[in-house]
């Protein structure tokens, strides 16, 4: 029962959602509307679960004084202060939450990704070697895009942006479309396996 009921729900909901797509009847549209509304509510609860998980993990780390536990205090402080401010004063422009967002969250988030530029430059220098024919091709295509897509490329030659556009529109498009076919077929196959109960990893525990 512990497995059959969830599998049956998954199967019925999955089949209903496929069928409603092909049958533009009022009943199928109403079912669709209802499912879409319900899903948003159910998803919100799953998100709450995620918040609980990160909060408890931080508390646990501090309690047990695990490695780097001290920093978890900052996570908790950030979480509590921001939520209290957000829940108490609202989320509009001009509220304290927006001040925190603009001056703490934005700089931290934006900088975290920006330092990747340094590591990418360093890694490209160290590892990007034209050892084989394939690697050389990759390198040439990368150089064409890197030059052709910035104003410097136009300054070097007016043909470079055209060449970059050709690389992107013809060989790149062909490769990406072929990958897209593979990914799409894979997604459809996995979705079917979930609906039909062949893929049961999400049930957790031992497979029967």
């Amino acid at each position: 029962m512990q497995q059959r009921i969830p599998l049956a729900i998954c199967f019925i909901v999955g089949i209903v959602m496929i069928v409603q797509f092909f049958i533009p009847h009022r009943l199928s549209e109403q079912t669709f509307d209802l499912a879409v509304k319900w899903i948003r509510i159910i998803t919100a609860f799953a998100l709450v679960l995620g918040v609980r998980s990160i909060t408890f993990r931080s508390i646990e780390k501090i309690k047990r004084q695990k490695k780097d536990w001290f920093y978890s205090i900052f996570t908790l402080l950030g979480l509590v202060i921001t939520s209290v401010i957000g829940l108490g004063w609202g989320v509009k422009a001009g509220t304290p939450l927006r001040t925190i967002y603009n001056n703490i969250m934005v700089p931290l988030g934006a900088t975290m990704f920006s330092i990747l530029a340094y590591y990418m430059a360093s890694a490209a220098y160290r590892a990007f070697r034209a050892r084989t024919r394939e690697a050389t091709l990759l390198l040439i295509a990368a150089f064409i895009v890197m030059l052709g897509k910035v104003p410097l490329g136009t300054a070097i030659s007016g043909k470079l942006p055209d060449l970059a556009d050709w690389v992107l529109n013809v060989p790149n498009m062909a490769a990406k479309r072929a990958i897209l076919f593979g990914v799409a077929l894979g997604m459809i196959a996995t979705s079917l396996k979930i609906i039909l109960g062949i893929e049961r990893g999400w049930l957790g525990g031992r497979r029967r």
């Binding site: 530029a117 430059a121 490209a124 220098y125 160290r126 034209a130 030059l147 910035v150």
Partner: peptide
Amino acid sequence: AHLAIMILIVLGN
């Protein structure tokens, strides 16, 4: 920056 990274890759090679 693109030029610098390209030069670095060439130097590495």
